[in-house]
Design a protein around this nucleic acid. Sequence first.
DNA 1: TGTACATCAGTGAACGCGCGTTCACTGATGTAC
DNA 2: TGTACATCAGTGAACGCGCGTTCACTGATGTAC
Lengths: 193, 193
Amino acid sequence: MRYDKSHKETTHRRVVETASARFQKEGLDSVGVANLMKDAGLTHGGFYSHFPSKEALIEEAIVSSMEATFARLCRVAEDGGIEEFIRYYLRPGHRDHPEKGCAAAALAAEIARHSKPTRAAFTEKTRKLISLIEARLPKPDAATARAIFATLVGAIQLSRAVSDSKLSDKMLEAGETAALSLVRMNRADLRFL
Amino acid sequence: MRYDKSHKETTHRRVVETASARFQKEGLDSVGVANLMKDAGLTHGGFYSHFPSKEALIEEAIVSSMEATFARLCRVAEDGGIEEFIRYYLRPGHRDHPEKGCAAAALAAEIARHSKPTRAAFTEKTRKLISLIEARLPKPDAATARAIFATLVGAIQLSRAVSDSKLSDKMLEAGETAALSLVRMNRADLRFL
DNA sequence: TGTACATCAGTGAACGCGCGTTCACTGATGTAC
DNA sequence: TGTACATCAGTGAACGCGCGTTCACTGATGTAC
């Protein structure tokens, strides 16, 4: 099968995107190479003509997901500012669909246990997300942006882990209120607090 | 080998505690039953006279860890109030030693993918931790307590995942500042913010 | 234009390994005599 | 007090399975003649 130049590239992207969704839904360890390739309509043997190792795919999948998340959040912030960004991140739909959501919220703890290159790639994309928040703050401030991101990630994770749906909703609401408060404190320049 | 009544109980506890530490350091999937039992000084065959399944051990390990964390944080809050609680949770030593730390910070995303009983046990212990925060707030408020816990969990997770140690430190600092601000807002009754 | 061929994306069998789980067994010890 | 025995925590071989990875191969297609 000799295909034109773009063919392999298209396949590669399809594998990365399938992997991205499944990693975030099932966890990095629970998705096997063979099963994943089958899901992408291929056989497992071809995997290593696309990626040097599963770890390399993990890195690509995280980067791809974080870039998509960045682009989406950019648009949301463009339209509705940082407040809408916060509400969008903490919407129940994000909690309920990790496969379509933010890789930081789905995989942060697992990424911490992976290779240096994987963590470095994640770090770069995390920085961008934090910068996006910072730039949208009434009075741009990196520490506030970092804290808001931590609150968003923690609230989504806890809302996913608890088995009581009422508590789950309340975690999202509490995260939203707190993140919005941090924005308002930033606007009001309440540094003394 | 016939032992007195307390013997099996002691062994059981040793396995749970070994598991607890290793799960939080290496992840739930990365720790195998055989390897874990060896680490506890036993052979893998005996595992099923202690636990009906690996999942049951996971549940016990999480409960055990959360109870130890609760007790430790209780003491810290007793001595230094909610502010010291926050500083203690976000100390670099907690980031650097997940095996001795909070299960929520180490495993929240993975717990979300596990069995209902495991998640229910985690939920109960999470509630207790949040109640502990709430009770220590200047003006007890569940939503603020939930938001503080989300911020702590998110900050630890991100500080562990990023590969840049400076950014990692800044994540902890930002989380601390934000959580302390939420406490001060609670004290000042700044609900309008 | 028609044909022969080189390319190379994708195939599928095979590798050693560790996984969770089962089970017939062992042997040190508390207890009954 | 001394001995025979029942108990049962722990042993280790074995199960089928999926893991990540390797590699000799296939065969459709773009290209050179």
